[in-house]
Computed example of a mutant assay.
Amino acid sequence: MRLKVTLCGLAVVVALGACTSSPPKHPTFAGGSSAPTTAGSPPPWQEPAAYGFVVERRCAQGPSLGRYRVAVQDGQVVRTERIDGRTAAGEEEIEVPSLGELLTLAQTAADDGGAVTTTFDPADGHPTAVSFSVSGQQDADGSCFLVSEYAPAS
Rank of each mutant, 00 (worst) to 15 (best):
P27A: 06
P27K: 09
F29E: 07
A30L: 09
G31C: 08
G31R: 03
G31F: 05
S34A: 15
P36I: 10
T37L: 15
T38E: 13
T38Y: 13
P44N: 06
W45Q: 07
Q46P: 00
E47H: 05
E47F: 02
P48W: 04
A49Y: 09
A49L: 14
Y51K: 10
G52T: 15
V55T: 12
V55D: 01
R57P: 00
R57L: 02
R57D: 00
C59M: 01
C59G: 13
Q61H: 12
Q61G: 13
G62L: 00
P63E: 13
P63D: 13
S64Y: 02
R67C: 02
R67A: 01
R67P: 01
R67N: 01
Y68C: 01
Y68I: 00
A71K: 11
A71L: 12
Q73N: 10
D74W: 02
D74T: 09
Q76G: 05
Q76H: 10
V77L: 04
V78Q: 14
V78L: 02
R79L: 08
E81R: 13
R82C: 02
I83A: 07
I83S: 02
R86A: 14
R86T: 13
T87E: 11
T87F: 06
A88K: 03
A88H: 11
A89H: 10
G90F: 07
E93A: 11
E93Q: 10
V96D: 05
V96C: 03
P97H: 05
P97N: 07
S98L: 05
G100S: 10
E101S: 13
L102N: 08
L102G: 11
L103Q: 14
T104D: 09
L105R: 15
A106N: 06
Q107C: 07
Q107Y: 06
T108A: 12
T108P: 00
A109I: 07
D111L: 07
D111Q: 11
D111M: 03
G113A: 08
G114Q: 03
A115M: 09
V116F: 09
T117P: 00
T117A: 10
